[in-house]
C-alpha cells in the first residue's frame, strides 16, 4: 500500500473539514495510506513569501525536511500549501547557497534538507499512483454525465516548471466519475482569493466573472481542489449577490466529495451540508449501476 506524508495545512481543517474528511475516506478506499505529518508548521501563504522571503523559505524547508526523514512523498489537498512547498523545494534545489543557509538554521533542531523529498497534490497522487482504471473500478454510482466546470487553481498549474502539474489530470479524474467536463472561456482565470486582503471589490469581481463564465457554458456544478478557491467561488456567491445583485446558485464541490459519492459514500460522510451553496442537487445525478 503506498504511504504518504499528509500535509493538511491550516485552511482545509479550519474552513473545510468536509474536504478533509472526503479526502481521507476516498484515499482509504483507494488503498492509499495517508499519515498526518507530525510537528509541521503552517506554510505561511503567499503573503509570507511576499513580506519575508527567508522566513518563508525556513518554515517550509522545515516541513520538507520532516517529510524527507521517512522517505515518503508529501501530499496536500491545498493549492496554497502545494505552491509554497513546491516553490521552496524548487528554489532550494537550484540554489546551493540558500540551501546551505537554510540548513544551518535547521541543524539547530536536528533537521537537514537534501531536497530528495517529492511534493504532490493529493489528487495527483490518486491519478498517478492509483490510476484512472483502478479508480473507475471503485465507482458504484457513476454520475449521469452532469456538466461540471473545473476550476484548477493558479498555483496548482503555474508556473509549470515548478508545479509539474497539467490540467488534464483533473479532467480525467472528473470524467472517471461519469461527469462531463465543461469547457469555458475563463478556465484559466484566477478566483481572486489572493487579492482579498488588499482589494475586496476586485476579488469579488474576479469571482463573479469566473462563475458567470461557468454558468454561460451551462455548467450545473463547479469543482475545486483548494480551500481558498473553494471559498472564493462558493461562499463568495453571497458577496456577489450583495455587490452585483446576481444569484448564480452554482454549487461548488471538492473533487474528493464527488469521487466519494460516486463510490457510494453517503452525503453525511463527505459533509455535503457544509458546502455553502447547497450542493445536494448533485445527489440527483448519481445513477446506480
Amino acid at each position: 500500500m503506498p504511504t504518504y506524508n499528509l500535509y493538511m495545512g491550516c485552511s482545509v481543517p479550519a474552513n473545510y473539514p468536509n474536504y478533509e474528511a472526503a479526502t481521507l475516506k476516498v484515499a482509504e478506499k483507494l488503498g492509499m495510506e495517508l499519515q498526518y505529518m507530525e510537528g509541521v508548521a503552517c506554510c505561511g501563504s503567499p503573503n509570507l513569501r511576499a513580506i519575508d522571503y527567508f522566513g518563508w523559505l525556513l518554515v517550509n524547508a522545515r516541513t520538507l525536511a520532516i517529510g524527507e526523514k521517512n522517505g515518503h512523498d508529501i501530499v496536500t489537498p491545498c493549492n496554497g500549501c502545494f505552491a509554497a512547498l513546491k516553490d521552496v523545494w524548487y528554489h532550494l534545489k537550484h540554489n546551493e547557497e540558500d540551501l546551505k543557509k537554510v540548513n544551518e538554521e535547521l541543524k539547530k533542531s536536528g533537521l537537514e534538507l537534501k531536497c530528495n523529498v517529492r511534493v504532490r497534490h493529493v489528487v495527483e497522487a490518486m491519478y498517478t499512483d492509483i490510476g484512472i482504471v483502478a479508480i473507475k473500478e471503485r465507482i458504484t454510482k457513476p454520475l449521469d454525465g452532469v456538466r461540471i466546470a473545473i476550476h484548477y487553481g493558479c498555483h496548482l498549474l503555474r508556473p509549470k516548471d515548478v508545479t509539474e502539474f497539467t490540467p488534464e489530470v483533473l479532467d480525467e479524474l472528473l470524467r472517471a466519475t461519469g461527469a462531463t467536463v465543461v469547457e469555458y472561456p475563463l478556465w484559466k482565470q484566477c478566483c481572486g482569493a489572493t487579492v482579498l486582503p488588499v482589494n475586496e471589490d476586485l476579488a469579488v469581481r474576479l469571482a463573479h466573472d469566473k462563475l458567470k463564465s461557468m454558468k454561460d457554458a451551462e455548467a450545473e456544478f463547479a469543482m475545486v481542489v483548494c480551500p481558498a478557491c473553494g471559498n472564493q467561488l462558493d461562499l463568495q456567491q453571497f458577496g456577489i449577490k450583495e455587490s452585483y445583485g446576481v444569484e448564480f446558485n452554482l454549487p461548488v464541490l471538492f473533487y474528493p466529495q464527488i469521487l466519494a459519492l460516486a463510490m457510494g459514500m453517503s452525503e453525511d460522510e463527505v459533509g455535503l451540508g457544509m458546502n455553502r451553496v447547497p450542493a445536494d442537487p448533485i445527489l440527483c445525478h448519481f445513477t446506480s449501476e
Binding site: M8, P13, M37, A41, C42, G55, L58, E105
Partner: peptide, 21 residues
C-alpha cells in the same frame, strides 16, 4: 488539526523579517 505545531513557526518568524514587521 493533527500534527500541526505552531511554536516552531512563531519561533522562526520572530527572528526573521516578519518579527520586525
Amino acid at each position: 488539526v493533527p500534527g500541526l505545531s505552531t511554536d516552531e513557526f512563531k519561533e522562526i518568524l520572530k527572528r526573521t523579517r516578519t518579527g520586525k514587521i
